[in-house]
Design a protein around this nucleic acid. Structure first.
Length: 948
RNA sequence: GAUCUGAUAGCUCAGCUGGGAGAGCACUAUCUUGACAGGGUAGGGGUCGGCGGUUCGAACCCGUCUCAGAUCACCA
C-alpha cells in the first residue's frame, strides 16, 4: 500500500515542510535513519502520520565521520584483509622474537587435507588463538605451529572417488601415478586450509608449517618404527583384524564404528557325521559357515557331554569338523553350541588356536567369496548370504530364522560393513607402552585434563588397550620400512632403504607394500614437528614439551592417547602439560553436523556475513569446557552487535580525542568519581579475565568482557564522561580524555585475543605506542588503580539515577517537563558525595530538565525513592495522586518488610550465628541495617503523606 | 551391561571452593537527550527434573528415581 507522507525539516527554530510521496512508512523511516549521518540529519521523528527531521548544527556527522574514517557501523571485511596482511608483513606471529623470554608452545591439531575446514575447526583453532595471543601479549615467546595431516585412508578414499567419476580405479593408474594425483589434491587443499586460517585471523607461525609426509616427519616415523621393532614392540603376524572390503585395507579397532542393525539370527542344524543325531548352532552371518572348522560347546554342558570329540558333517561343503569343548561358550545362550570360523571371527580365532583348528578364508579382500566357498565362488558376501540361506532352507539345515537386533561394525571412513578377516599385518604391542603412560598418570607426572573427567575416560581406554594394527593396504602414507629378500625371504627393518640381504647377500629386495596407519605419524606430531629426532634441533630443545593441546573429545583415543605414550617412550616426558578438551559444534537443533544431513556450517560463510571477530567471539564464548555447543545464528548476531557496540563507543571516544596524543595520557592526580571508578573496574576486569583464561574458562571471560564494555564502559562511563568532555573546564576535560584513551587502549588489548581485527582497527586509531596491539603488553593488575571509595560513590549515584528513572517510568514524566529533585542525604559523607556529583544525577535521570536540590524539606506532591543513604523526592504536582503514591509505597514497604524478616530470621538462628563465617554474618547484619533503614523511611513517608 | 554428561525464564545457555536466581534472544511498555534502532530506559516471566538426605544454609554436596544424550564393551 502506497501512501504519501509529510516530512518536516526543522532548522534553527524554522520548520520546512517537505512532501514525499510513494513510500512505505516505517521502512522508509529506517532507510532514512540508516543514511542519516551521510546526509547530515541530526534527528528524525517518526510516527504513523508524520516524520520530522532536524539537521545537525555546525559540524555535521558526515564530516566528523570522514575525519575519523570510521563509519557508524563496523565493516569487518576491510579491516580483516588489511590487518592480517599487516601482521604477516610485520612477522608478529613468528616465534623466537624474544630469545630470553619463556617459551609457550601450542601445536595445532593438524586438519586433514581431505577438504575444507568446518565450524568445529573454527572452535578448536579460535580457542588456541586466544591462548597464544594472550601469552604473546604477556611476554612469552609464543609459538603456535601450524600443519596438516595426510589422513591416509580419508584422503585416498576421496581421490579414489574422484577417479571413479572418471571411470578409473587406483589400480588403473598404478601406485606412482596415483600418488601424483593425491599430491595434487593435497596441494590444493592445504592451500585452502591456509587461506581459511588467515580468514579466521589465526596467529600461526607459518614459517614452521609442517605436513605429516614431510621428509623430517617421515624420518621421525621411520625412527620410531625401527626403534619399536628393535625393542620387540612392533611385530608382524597373521591375526584376525578388522577388514574394510570397500577400501580393501585393514583397520584398527577404533576405526570401526558399531551401529545397531536389524538383522536375523539363523539357526542351523548340523548333522553328526555318524548319523547319530544333530547339533543346532545359531549365526548372524550364515555365509561364514563355509569356513567353519568346528562346533564348540561348554565342557560342563550335560546336553552335549557325549558329543564332544565326535565329528559333524558340515552341510554344503561336506567337510567333517569336530565338536570341541571350550570354556568360552555360554551354556545359557541360544542352544549352547557355537559354530567356529577361525578365519572370520576374532573369538573363533582364539578358540581355533586353542584347539589347533584349520583356518579357512572364504572370501577375498573385497568381500567376494573365493574358491573355498565352492558353489558360491565370486558371489558378493551379502549375495552369498541370501543364496546360502535359500539353499540351507531347502536342505532342511536352516530350521529357524529369528529377528535379531545387533551391533554391526562399519568402517569409520568408507562406511562398509567391516569383515573380521585373517591376514598378515603389523602390530604395535601396546601393554608396555600403555603401562608407562598409566604409571605416569597415576604418579602425578601425567597430563592435566581439562575438564578432569576426561582423565578417567583416557585411563579406562589405555588400561584396556589391545594391540594396535598399524599396517594399511593403502598407497597414501608412510611406507613401512621393511624389506624382504626375494631369494631367502629374510626381513630387514631399517631407517634407510636396504640394498642387500644381510643373510644371503642378494640384492633383490622388495619393500613391504603396506603403509602405516595415519595416526602412527600423528602420534609423533608434538615432537616430530619440532625437529625430533634430530638431536641438534633448536626448536625441539626450546619449544618442547608443548604447553597445551586443544582438541575435541572425539579424538582422545585416536590421537591424544597415542601422542602421550609415544612421547613418553621417545622423549621421556609428556608431550604437553594440559589437554583442553572441548565439545562438538552441533546444529541449532542439537544434531551432529554431517554431510548427509547438510546441516554443516561453513566458517567462511559466518565470516562473510558477520565478520571473523563475531564468529570467534560467538564460538569461543558460548562454550564450556568439554560440553557440546549449538550453533545459532542469533548468537553470531549478538556477537556482531557487541562488535558494533565496541565500535561505536570507540567512535565516540575518538571524536573527543582529536589532537590528543599518547604522551598526553596522564591518569595521575585529581580524577573525577566516574574516572576513578572505570579505572577500578577495568583493573578488576583485567585481573579476572587473566585468571579465567588461564583456567580455560572462555565463556566466563567473554561474559565478563561483555559486561564490562557494554554496561560499565558504554552505559555508565561514557555517559558520565560527556559532562566533562562537553564542559568548559579544560583541565578536567583533559583528565577525562586521558582516562578514556587509557581505558579504551587497555580494553582493546583485553578483547584482542577474542576479536583481533576490530581491536587492532580501533587501537590503531587510538593514541597508542607500538606497531600493533598484537604485541602490546597484556594489562596487569595495578593496585594503584584501586579506588573503593569511588566505587562506593558511583554505586550511590547509579542507585539514585536508577531510582529516579523508575519513578519517571512509572508516572510517565515527559522528557520536556522541568523537574526538581529534592535529595536528603543521611550523613555528611553522602552529602559531600552527592554535592560533588550533582551534575551526573541531573543529566542522566532520564529527563533533560532535572535539577537537584539539596537541603530542602520534602515536598508534598512528590514521589519518593529511598536508596541506601539517601531519600529522594520528585515533586510531580499534577501528575500523581497521593492515594496512588501511598499504594506504591505500601507495596515497597511490604517488600522491604519481607527482606528484613528473612534476614532477621537468619540472624536469630543460633546455628547460623555459631557456624557461619564471620564475614557472612557481618554481611547479613549490614543488609539488615540497610533494609531496616529503608523500610523505616518508607513508613515515615507514608505517614507524612497520610497527614496531608 | 558399564561409565560419563545433561535436565535452571517461552528458546539457547551461564552460574568457575554451598551464603539473597543471571545473560542473550523472544515478549510488553516507553524513548530519538550531539557513539550506537545492529541503540537507550523500564517491565513481565523460574517450587533451578521428582523424592529423600547432609548442613545454620543446597541450583551447587550425597543417595535414589525419571527423561534425554554420549562413550565403551558385548554371546554366537
Amino acid at each position: 500500500m502506497m501512501r504519501s507522507m509529510h516530512v518536516f525539516m526543522r532548522n534553527e527554530g524554522g520548520t520546512t515542510e517537505v512532501n514525499l510521496s510513494s513510500f512505505l512508512g516505517e521502512g522508509f523511516f529506517l532507510c532514512l535513519y540508516a543514511i542519516r549521518p551521510l546526509i547530515g540529519i541530526r534527528q528524525i521523528h517518526y510516527d504513523s502520520n508524520q516524520c520530522s527531521i532536524t539537521y545537525l548544527e555546525g559540524l555535521c556527522m558526515s564530516e566528523a565521520n570522514e575525519q575519523l574514517s570510521m563509519p557508524t557501523t563496523y565493516d569487518p571485511k576491510a579491516a580483516e584483509q588489511k590487518w592480517y596482511d599487516y601482521w604477516m608483513k610485520g612477522g608478529y606471529f613468528q616465534a623466537g622474537r624474544l630469545p630470553d623470554a619463556e617459551p609457550y608452545t601450542i601445536v595445532i591439531p593438524p586438519p586433514n587435507v581431505t577438504g575444507m575446514l568446518h565450524i568445529g575447526h573454527g572452535l578448536d583453532f579460535t580457542l588456541q588463538d586466544i591462548l597464544i595471543r594472550t601469552k604473546r601479549m604477556q611476554g612469552y615467546d609464543a609459538l603456535w605451529l601450524p600443519g596438516s595431516d595426510h589422513a591416509g585412508i580419508a584422503t585416498q578414499t576421496k581421490v579414489e572417488q574422484q577417479l571413479r567419476e572418471e571411470g578409473l580405479s587406483r589400480y588403473d593408474l598404478g601406485r606412482e601415478k596415483f600418488l601424483e594425483k593425491v599430491w595434487d589434491w593435497k596441494h590444493l587443499y592445504a592451500d585452502n586450509i591456509r587461506n581459511q586460517w588467515k580468514k579466521m585471523g589465526l596467529s600461526l607461525d607459518y614459517s614452521r608449517e609442517r605436513f605429516t609426509l614431510d621428509e623430517g616427519l617421515s624420518d621421525a616415523v621411520r625412527e620410531v618404527f625401527v626403534k619399536l621393532y628393535e625393542k620387540g614392540l612392533i611385530y608382524r603376524g597373521k591375526y584376525i583384524i578388522n577388514w574394510d572390503p570397500a577400501a580393501r585395507t585393514a583397520l584398527s579397532d577404533i576405526e570401526v564404528e558399531y551401529k545397531e542393525v536389524q538383522g536375523n539370527l539363523y539357526h542351523l542344524k548340523y548333522p553328526l557325521a555318524d548319523g547319530s543325531g544333530s547339533i543346532t548352532v545359531a549365526t548372524t552371518r550364515p555365509e561364514t559357515m563355509l569356513g567353519d572348522t568346528a562346533v564348540a560347546v561348554h565342557p560342563k554342558d550335560e546336553r552335549y557331554k557325549d558329543m564332544i570329540g565326535k565329528m559333524i558333517l558340515l552341510p554344503i561343503v561336506n567337510r567333517e569338523i569336530p565338536i570341541v569343548a571350550d570354556d568360552y561358550v555360554d551354556k545359557e545362550f541360544g542352544s549352547g553350541a557355537v559354530k567356529i570360523t577361525p578365519a572370520h571371527d576374532p573369538n573363533d580365532f582364539e578358540i581355533g588356536l586353542r584347539h589347533d583348528l584349520p583356518q579357512i578364508i572364504v572370501m577375498d579382500e573385497s568381500g567376494v567369496m573365493n574358491d573355498q566357498a565352492g558353489p558360491y565362488e565370486s558371489l558378493d558376501r551379502f549375495e552369498c548370504r541370501k543364496q546360502i540361506v535359500k539353499d540351507l532352507q531347502e536342505q532342511g539345515v536352516l530350521i529357524r530364522i529369528e529377528e535379531h537386533v545387533h551391533q554391526v561394525g562399519h568402517s569409520e571412513r568408507s562406511g562398509a560393513v567391516v569383515e573380521p578377516y585373517l591376514s598378515t599385518q603389523w602390530f604395535v604391542k601396546m601393554k608396555p607402552l600403555a603401562e608407562r603412560a598409566i604409571e605416569a598418570q597415576k604418579s602425578g607426572k601425567g597430563i592435566n585434563f581439562v575438564p578432569d573427567r576426561f582423565e578417567k575416560i583416557y585411563l579406562h581406554w589405555i588400561e584396556n588397550i589391545r594391540d594396535w594394527c598399524i599396517s594399511r593396504q593403502l598407497w597414501w602414507g608412510h611406507r613401512i620400512p621393511a624389506w624382504f629378500c626375494e631369494e631367502c625371504n629374510h626381513m630387514h627393518v631399517a631407517r634407510e632403504e636396504v640394498h642387500a640381504c644381510e643373510k644371503c647377500s642378494s640384492t633383490k629386495l622388495r619393500q613391504d607394500e603396506d603403509v602405516l596407519d595415519t595416526w602412527f605419524s600423528s602420534g609423533l606430531w608434538p615432537f616430530s614437528t619440532l625437529g625430533w629426532p634430530d638431536a641438534n634441533s633448536e626448536d625441539f630443545k626450546r619449544y618442547y614439551p608443548t604447553n597445551v593441546l586443544v582438541t575435541g573429545y572425539d579424538i582422545i583415543y585416536f590421537w591424544v592417547a597415542r601422542m602421550i605414550f609415544t612421547a613418553l617412550e621417545f622423549t621421556d616426558q609428556t608431550p604437553f602439560k594440559d589437554v583442553l578438551i572441548h565439545g562438538l559444534v552441533r546444529d541449532s537443533e542439537g544434531r551432529k553436523m554431517s554431510k548427509s544431513l547438510g546441516n554443516g556450517v561453513d566458517p567462511l560463510e559466518v565470516i562473510e556475513r558477520y565478520g571473523a571477530d563475531a564468529m570467534r567471539y560467538m564460538i569461543s564464548t558460548s562454550s564450556t569446557p568439554g560440553q557440546d555447543l549449538r550453533f545459532r545464528w542469533e548468537r553470531v548476531e549478538q556477537a556482531r552487535n557487541f562488535a558494533n557496540k565496541i565500535w561505536n563507543a570507540s567512535r565516540f571516544a575518538l571524536m573527543n580525542l582529536e589532537g590528543f596524543t599518547y604522551d598526553d595520557i596522564d591518569i595521575s592526580g585529581e580524577l573525577g568519581t566516574a574516572d576513578r571508578w572505570i579505572l577500578h573496574r577495568m583493573n578488576e576486569t583485567s585481573r579476572e579475565i587473566t585468571r579465567l583464561i588461564d583456567a580455560y574458562e572462555f565463556g566466563e571471560t567473554g561474559r565478563l568482557l561483555y559486561n564490562f564494555i557494554w554496561d560499565d564502559l558504554c552505559d555508565w562511563y561514557i555517559e558520565f564522561a560527556k559532562i566533562s568532555l562537553y564542559g568548559q573546564d579544560a583541565a578536567q576535560k583533559k583528565k577525562t580524555q586521558s582516562v578514556l584513551a587509557y581505558v579504551l587502549d587497555r580494553t582493546m588489548r583485553m578483547i584482542h585475543p577474542f576479536m583481533p581485527y576490530i581491536s587492532e582497527e580501533i587501537w590503531q586509531h587510538l593514541p597508542h605506542e607500538g606497531e600493533t596491539v598484537t604485541l602490546a603488553a597484556w594489562p596487569k593488575y595495578d593496585s594503584a588503580l584501586e579506588a573503593p571509595e569511588a566505587v562506593q560513590e558511583m554505586t550511590l549515584l547509579m542507585d539514585m539515577i536508577r531510582a529516579v528513572r523508575n519513578i519517571r517510568a512509572e508516572v510517565n514524566v515527559p522528557m520536556s517537563k522541568k523537574v526538581e529533585l529534592v535529595v536528603k542525604p543521611a550523613d555528611e559523607r553522602t552529602y559531600n558525595s552527592i554535592k560533588r556529583n550533582l551534575e551526573y544525577v541531573e543529566r542522566f535521570c532520564g529527563t533533560s530538565n532535572l535539577t537537584v536540590k539539596l537541603d530542602c524539606a520534602a515536598p508534598d506532591k512528590a514521589m519518593s525513592a529511598i536508596v541506601t543513604g539517601v531519600e529522594m523526592y520528585l515533586p510531580l504536582a499534577g501528575l500523581i495522586d497521593i492515594e496512588q503514591e501511598i499504594a506504591r509505597l505500601n507495596k515497597e514497604r511490604e517488600h522491604l518488610n519481607k527482606e528484613v524478616e528473612r534476614v532477621e530470621k537468619k540472624l536469630a538462628n543460633q546455628g547460623f550465628m555459631a557456624k557461619a563465617p564471620a564475614n557472612v554474618v557481618e554481611e547479613e547484619r549490614a543488609k539488615m541495617e540497610d533494609y531496616r533503614e529503608k523500610r523505616d523511611k518508607v513508613i515515615a513517608r507514608i505517614q507524612e503523606l497520610q497527614e496531608v
